[in-house]
């Protein structure tokens, strides 16, 4: 599967904005999901789940629980997309 980075990251930021307290324009790759974006563990797992549903990725709960930053979420998603 090939998704242009710009499109992919744009959609990613929209999903993050849906579950966080930030607007899309405020979200940066280095932001931590919990400390900076105000997510709890439930929200961060919901985010990864939404991502998996949106792009048809097979992500385990254990892997999702290990994601702590926006860049980490992007990297994880990219890895699965490229492997698909």
């Amino acid at each position: 599967m090939t998704i242009p980075d710009a499109k992919w990251e744009s959609r990613m930021m929209e999903l993050i904005a849906e579950v966080s307290v930030m607007k899309v324009s405020q979200i940066k790759p280095e932001h931590r999901l919990r400390e900076d974006l105000g997510m709890d563990s439930v929200c961060s797992l919901e985010l990864i789940s939404m991502l998996a549903e949106e792009f048809g990725l097979d992500i385990s709960v254990e892997e999702a629980a290990g994601v702590n930053t926006v860049s980490g979420a992007i990297a994880m998603a990219r890895k699965h997309i490229e492997a698909a």
Partner: peptide, 10 residues
């Protein structure tokens, strides 16, 4: 629509 379904997908 917005929920964690990772465990269910597994």
């Amino acid at each position: 629509k917005r929920s964690n379904v990772l465990g269910l997908r597994q």
